[in-house]
Design a protein around this nucleic acid. Structure first.
Lengths: 230, 230
DNA sequence: CGCCCGATTTAACAATTTTTAACATATCGC
DNA sequence: GCGATATGTTAAAAATTGTTAAATCGGGCG
């Protein structure tokens, strides 16, 4: 669960945002009522994203942002600013891949930006291997994004779960993909029923790949599966 | 190159403006001589900006503007009005971020406002990613502001919701646009009926794009949609 | 006002995807 | 080999999505 630091001096707005982001956004939100408090919170625990009100007593949002940048170069920041304050000041920050939003704003709009920034941040630190979307499986080509297996003019569309499972197998090809890893990755919960569901998908995927004798998904009893190629 | 629709009944002024804007402004300018003709042109092809004379026979500029706003919420409009006509009437429009200019005006003044509006439309207070208004979708061009899909001389007008949904898909192309994100963004409320409504729009958009085999909107079961290009 | 029109929503039904259930088979420790 | 557990396969049930048509809404116009 992602953790957000929200620094906003207006308690009405602050609490509203906190509630909304916790409920709708499924985030853990720490609320601070001024810049000083915000800085203390930031030094004490890690956050995935910061939302800083610009107009605040004691320490304004831009100042706080600059201080935080000295401690952490990468954490994404969203500045909430009144109209007109934008042009000059934000320039300093826009380089860092941060964002700003002008008050008043729709709360859905804020959620959108949060997700966009978090996504950008997380895709940046994904390992090369996890970005791979095309796989060669014997004589088949598997396009994870398009959810499609092809071989010559043969095309087989895959459902989302089929594609996700096959992708994990490919990433671990010739090694064991544990049932637990697959379940946590795709179903986000390792329980009996999800396990049985996965078995059904394994069965389907094997059917799709049955025409190439050099491709096989074998079971490693009690541990998981291995995609063997050649 | 930006495309402007100019609706002006005085042929002298109309041709003069058209020439000037094409030469100095580097715009493509379509000239219509009354409101009816203007509305027809607007529904047939995409425009980045409209200049409407207010005093016109058959259908005046304000009426035309209102009708156009019904079909398209976003395209920027400049009204050319005689002195004194301004205060009351324009109020209805000023909300939409439109502009007006009083006749007689210096032509440089008009050019200035055009550029200001175009810039505002594209940069307002939005984050980098959200500024984009033109998208290439396979062999189609999608103009979000004009709410129009084009390919060669084929033009398909989109409703507001259609355009917003397609825009979100474009912003996330080849990635998942979650149902929740789309619903919060466009409907501002994620519930069963809005979800079903969205499904209907998806279906429509797929029809518009069906003639390019390289373009596909696939479902990611339980999560959302992916716009695949190539 | 009542009518028309297009945009959107609601409803109905079809198709697809995923889960659950049922039963068959395999593996392991003993 | 035997019982317990794990896996393979198929089919039915449940949930989600696709599509089409009808109902509704709201603005313009006579």
């Amino acid at each position: 669960m992602k953790k957000i630091l929200l620094v906003e001096d207006d308690p009405n707005l602050g609490l509203l945002l906190q509630d909304y982001l916790q409920l709708k956004g499924k985030f853990e939100v720490v609320l601070c009522k001024d810049g000083e408090e915000g800085l203390r919170a930031f030094t004490k625990q890690p956050f995935d994203l910061l939302i800083l009100d610009v107009m605040m007593p004691r320490k304004d949002g831009f100042t706080l942002g600059k201080e935080i940048r000295k401690i952490n170069e990468h954490v994404p920041i969203i500045f909430a600013t009144a109209k007109g304050m934008i042009e000059d000041k934000t320039q300093a920050f826009n380089l860092g891949g941060d964002d700003y939003i002008t008050k008043p704003f729709r709360i859905e709009e804020l959620l959108l930006r949060i997700n966009a920034l978090l996504k950008r941040a997380s895709s940046a630190d994904k390992s090369e291997e996890e970005k791979q979307t095309h796989f060669k499986i014997g004589r088949y080509d598997f396009d994870y994004t398009a959810q499609m297996i092809s071989a010559g003019d043969f095309h087989q569309k895959l459902s989302t779960k089929e594609a996700e499972l096959l992708r994990l197998l490919c990433l671990r090809k010739n090694e064991v993909l544990t049932r637990e890893e697959a379940l946590l990755n795709i179903w986000h919960d390792d329980n009996y029923f999800n396990g049985r569901s996965m078995d059904v998908f394994l069965s389907k995927i094997r059917k799709y790949l049955k025409d190439d004798q050099n491709v096989e998904i074998i079971n490693v009893h009690g541990r998981g599966y291995k995609l063997l190629i050649n």
